[in-house]
Simulated assay, not measured.
Amino acid sequence: MAEIVIFLAIKKIRFALAKGAADQASVQFAKYGTQLLELQSTMGRVASELRVIHDVLCQMDIRNRNNQVYEGWLEEIQKVAHVMEDMVDEYLYLVGQEHDIGCCFFLKKGVKKPRSLLSFNRLALKVKETEKHLTHLSEIKNRWVTLINNGDTNSSNYIVKRSQDLANISRSLDEEDLVGVDENRRKLEQWLAGDDLECSVIALLGMGGLGKTALAANVYKKERDKFQCHAWVSISQTYSREHVLRIIIKEVFKDNATILSSTVAMDIVCLEETLTKFLEQ
């Protein structure tokens, strides 16, 4: 979920720095052009830092989620992302403040302008401090989290098990447990009901935590009986072809104990031949 939190913060900063908001800010704080540019530059650097962190998180091995040091560091990053979102909200409010005054502009100008400037200066300092905090967190990761990651890396069994556990949890979810997936679910069901599925791959793409596996599992449970054979297989970041073949065979031969017992001693070539012969039918 950390990836989503960071992504939303990046998106909000980019909106604040987009042309429309930037032009309005230039009008609102025309006399303080240097300070405004410095604030916007700082926000841009924070967005860039968060973007790199987001990309790194998307690429990091799942085993990093199993150590306390990494989790603590990630929690601090999420706090920074939340704080940055709040400051961007305040910035957008200040930028649009005079614009919302309307017909009372000249009556309230003397009151609103100093308050806006005071808030602007305070906001600029807070954003600057947030940038320093983010840089400090990056340095902490290089000093401490890296040491943990460079330690015992023989955790492939954990990675495989964790991936399978997540997939199995998704399979256990009922239809009423899923929210906001109706359109994508209908689309998947339509594709599966098409006539061009003799050899087809359907890919679900998106950030971690969006519910892709849960959606796929839900559609799989509803549509699997329409096919002559079906198998649910979870493939982690580290896997072996033999292991995957055994899972597929276990799924498609689950009602045939004789064949399942005979595959126990098979090597990968025999497993491939067994599965091939079954699929040819």
Rank of each mutant, 00 (worst) to 15 (best):
44 G>W: 05
44 G>E: 06
44 G>L: 08
45 R>E: 14
45 R>W: 04
46 V>R: 03
46 V>L: 10
47 A>T: 03
47 A>W: 01
47 A>D: 06
47 A>L: 06
48 S>N: 13
48 S>D: 15
48 S>H: 09
49 E>S: 14
49 E>G: 11
50 L>Q: 05
50 L>D: 04
51 R>A: 15
52 V>W: 07
52 V>R: 12
52 V>E: 12
53 I>R: 04
53 I>E: 03
54 H>Y: 12
54 H>E: 14
55 D>Q: 13
55 D>N: 14
55 D>Y: 07
56 V>C: 10
56 V>P: 01
56 V>E: 15
58 C>S: 14
58 C>H: 05
58 C>E: 12
59 Q>K: 15
60 M>W: 06
60 M>E: 13
60 M>C: 11
61 D>Y: 05
61 D>S: 11
61 D>L: 11
61 D>G: 05
62 I>A: 13
62 I>Y: 01
62 I>M: 10
63 R>Q: 08
63 R>L: 06
63 R>G: 00
64 N>H: 11
64 N>A: 09
65 R>V: 04
66 N>D: 10
67 N>W: 02
67 N>Y: 03
67 N>G: 03
68 Q>L: 11
68 Q>W: 04
69 V>T: 10
69 V>F: 01
69 V>M: 06
70 Y>R: 01
70 Y>E: 02
70 Y>N: 04
71 E>V: 10
71 E>D: 09
71 E>W: 00
72 G>P: 00
72 G>W: 00
72 G>D: 10
72 G>M: 06
74 L>Q: 06
75 E>R: 12
75 E>F: 05
75 E>L: 08
75 E>Y: 06
75 E>K: 11
76 E>P: 00
76 E>H: 07
76 E>L: 06
76 E>S: 09
78 Q>E: 11
78 Q>M: 07
